[in-house]
Nucleic acid binder design. Structure first.
Lengths: 341, 341
DNA sequence: AGATTGAGGGTAAACGTTTACCCTTGCTGC
DNA sequence: GCAGCAAGGGTAAACGTTTACCCTCAATCT
C-alpha cells in the first residue's frame, strides 16, 4: 500500500482574499475595501495603518473576478489588430501596452486577420469580458461593430478610421497631409512622372494617401497616368510591391520615382528591381518608416509616423484625461529622406 | 431650460445573464448551466433545444467574471515577452494568440523589458487575474517566478529556458544543434577563421549557440581566437552588431566569415560593413531567419526557426493534450543559405 | 409487490468584491 | 439641554456563475 506524503512546502499558498485581510487587521471587510479604494472620512489613521500592514503581510491583491463582477467592468482593454505579423501593428501594440499598464489596465491582444467574422467573434468575447475599452488597429466593417457603436464601451480607432463613422475616436496622422508632403518633396527634386503603388483601398489611411498624392501631382501640372497607379490584389504588402514592380517593368512604361503607400510594399518593389539589376533605381518613397529602415533600407525615404507615442494617446482617450472635444488625436509625422542605394 | 431627450435607440442593451436565458427557456438557472456545459444525463433533448434557442435569441455568452469567480480560474493566458519591439517575439506572440483562441483562451500580452521587477509586477497581476497559464518569451530570474514555480499555474518557457529549472516546460529549438549546423556549414565552405558576435549570455539560447559554435570550430582544428569573439554591452541587437563590426574592422584582425547569434545583430554588422564600402563582404550567418530576410537581407544565411508553429506547441502544453513526459517541445530548425550580396 | 436505479431537473450555497444603509459616539451651535 | 452633524465603522445585498444535494417519476429487478 502506498503512503501519501504531504508536500514538504505547501505548493500553492491560496491567494489571500479581502476577508483574510479584514480578519488579520481586526476590522470588517467593508473597512478594508474602503481603505483600499481611498474612500474619505471612513477610516482613522490607525485603522488605515493596520489595514495596509495586513495587506503587505499577506501580499494581498484584489481578485479581478470579484471586482469585475461587482463593478460590471474589468481592467481589460482589448486591442484588435488587423495583422500582428506587420511590424507596424506590433510597434503600436507594444507602445499601447506600456501606456495602459501605467494606468493599471491590462492589454489583451487579438489578431483579426482583417476578417469581419473573426472581429465580431472577438467583440463578443470582449463584451463577455466586460472590457473597459476596445482599440482597433485597422478596423473592418462588421455587424457587431455597428451594434457596439454608441454603446458604453469606448471604441478607439488607430491608423484607420471607423469605417462607419469618420468622426469616432481616432489616433493617427494626417494622411492627406503626409501624402502632400511626399508629393511636394518629390516635385521639388524634379520628379514629374512617378509610379504609385498602393495597398487595397479599404483602409481610410491608404485612400487618403493615394488621393492626396494624385491630386498634388495633378495640381502641379503633371497628373499621374492611370497606367502608373497600381494596386495588385495580393494579400501581403511585400507581395503587392513585388508584383507591382513586375507589372511596371514588364510593360516598359517610364517613371522617375516610386511611391508606395507602405514601407513593406517598398521592400517588395526594391527586391524586384534589385533582382533585375537595374543600374540606377529611381528614388523610392514609403510610409511608416519601419525602425529597420536605417539598417536594411538606406535607399528608402519614408514618412516617419510616431507609433511609439500612439499608445499614450490611446490611453488618454480611454481614461478620459482630456476634454470631450479632443477625441481626434492627430499626431505629427515627418518625411525622412534617404538616398544611398 | 433644457429638455433631456431619451436616446432614439437604447444605446446599451444590457448584456443578458444566465437568469434571462433560464426565464426565457422556462427552466431553472441550473439547467441552463448544465446544458451549456454539456453535463450528461441532465437534460432531455427538448429542454436542450429550448435552452439553445433562448441562448441564440438573447445572444447570450457567459460572463467571464462570474465564471472566474466561481471556478477560481480564468480563460486568460499571460504572455510575458522580454521585448515586443523584437519582430521575433511579435511573431511568436501572434502564433500563440491564434493557437490559444482555438482553445477558447484569451491572450494577454505584456512587455517585461527584461526587467525582473516588471516581470514580478506582471506575475502578481496575473495571479490576481487567476490566469490559466503563463508563457515566458525570454524569462528572467525573479523572486515571484521562484514563488510560482511548483504552484498550480503552468509556467511555459519559450526560446529561453527557465533560468531556475532547465527541465521546466519548454518550447524552442535545439540551439546547440543549430550552432553545430552553422559551424558545419561554414567549415564545409572553407571558413577557418570566423568572427563570432553574440548578444548578452544571460539567455540560455544564446549561450548554447555560442558554446556549440566555438566547440565545433575547435574540434575541427581551428579554434576561434578570443579576439574574434565579441559581445558588446549595447542593449539593442542592432546596436550590438554595429558596434562589434566597428571594433572588428578597427583592430584589423582578419576573419573569413561573420557569425551572429541573431539576425538583428547581423543587420547591424552588415550596415557597418556596407558603410565602409568593403568590396567583398564575407559570408554572414544569423539565427531566427526574420521573415523580411528574403526581401531586405538576401546576403544573410540564417537558421530558420519555425516560430509560426510555436503557438501550437504552447497551446498543447497548456491544455494538456499530450502525455506528461513530453513537456520539452524541441522543434525542428533549418539553415537557410543566402549568398547574394 | 417492494426495492432499486437512472433520468430529469430544481434549490441554494459559495466564490470576492463594493456600497447603500444603519448605528454609535463625540462635538457644535443654539 | 438638546437637535444636528460628522467621523468611524459594521451589516448585508448584489453581481453571474457552477455544483452538491435533494426531489420526483418511471422503469427494471428480485
Amino acid at each position: 500500500m502506498t503512503m501519501r506524503r504531504t508536500a514538504l512546502k505547501p505548493p500553492d499558498a491560496q491567494q489571500a482574499s479581502i476577508a483574510n485581510v479584514a480578519e488579520r487587521a481586526g476590522v470588517s471587510i467593508a473597512t478594508v475595501s474602503r481603505v483600499l479604494n481611498g474612500v474619505a472620512n471612513k477610516a482613522s489613521p490607525e485603522t488605515v495603518a493596520k489595514v495596509r500592514q495586513a495587506v503587505a503581510e499577506l501580499d494581498y491583491r484584489p481578485s479581478s473576478a470579484g471586482k469585475s463582477l461587482r463593478q460590471k467592468q474589468s481592467r481589460l482593454v482589448a486591442v484588435l489588430a488587423a495583422n500582428l505579423a506587420n511590424p507596424t501593428m506590433a510597434a503600436i501594440a507594444a507602445s499601447t501596452e506600456v501606456a495602459l499598464r501605467k494606468q493599471g489596465l491590462v492589454m489583451v491582444l487579438c489578431d483579426t486577420h482583417d476578417d469581419p467574422d473573426l472581429q465580431d467573434e472577438y467583440l463578443r468575447e470582449m463584451r463577455a469580458q466586460q472590457a473597459r475599452a476596445i482599440v482597433f488597429l485597422g478596423a473592418v466593417a462588421s455587424p457587431m461593430l455597428d451594434m457596439m457603436r454608441g454603446g458604453s464601451t469606448p471604441l478607439i480607432f488607430v491608423n484607420r478610421r471607423d469605417p462607419g463613422d469618420p468622426d469616432g475616436d481616432f489616433v493617427g496622422i494626417d494622411n492627406a497631409q503626409a501624402g502632400r508632403d511626399v508629393a511636394a518633396h518629390a516635385l521639388e527634386r524634379g520628379v514629374r512622372r512617378p509610379a504609385l503603388i498602393h495597398a487595397p483601398l479599404a483602409s481610410s489611411a491608404t485612400r487618403a494617401r493615394v488621393v492626396a498624392i494624385t491630386e498634388s501631382f495633378a495640381a502641379a501640372g503633371c497628373p499621374i497616368p492611370p497606367s502608373l497607379i497600381l494596386g495588385p490584389p495580393e494579400r501581403e504588402h511585400l507581395a503587392i510591391g513585388y508584383a507591382a514592380a513586375g507589372m511596371l517593368l514588364q510593360n516598359g512604361d517610364q517613371f522617375d520615382a516610386l511611391i508606395c503607400t507602405g514601407d513593406l510594399i517598398a521592400f517588395g518593389v526594391h527586391r524586384f528591381i534589385e533582382e533585375t539589376a537595374d543600374p540606377a533605381p529611381p528614388p523610392i518613397y514609403g510610409f511608416d518608416d519601419n525602425p529597420l529602415n536605417d539598417w536594411v533600407a538606406p535607399w528608402l525615404s519614408s514618412v516617419l509616423i510616431p507609433y511609439s507615442t500612439f499608445g499614450q494617446a490611446v490611453a488618454e482617450l480611454i481614461t478620459g484625461d482630456l476634454v470631450g472635444t479632443d477625441r481626434q488625436r492627430v499626431l505629427p509625422h515627418r518625411l525622412i529622406e534617404r538616398r544611398r542605394s
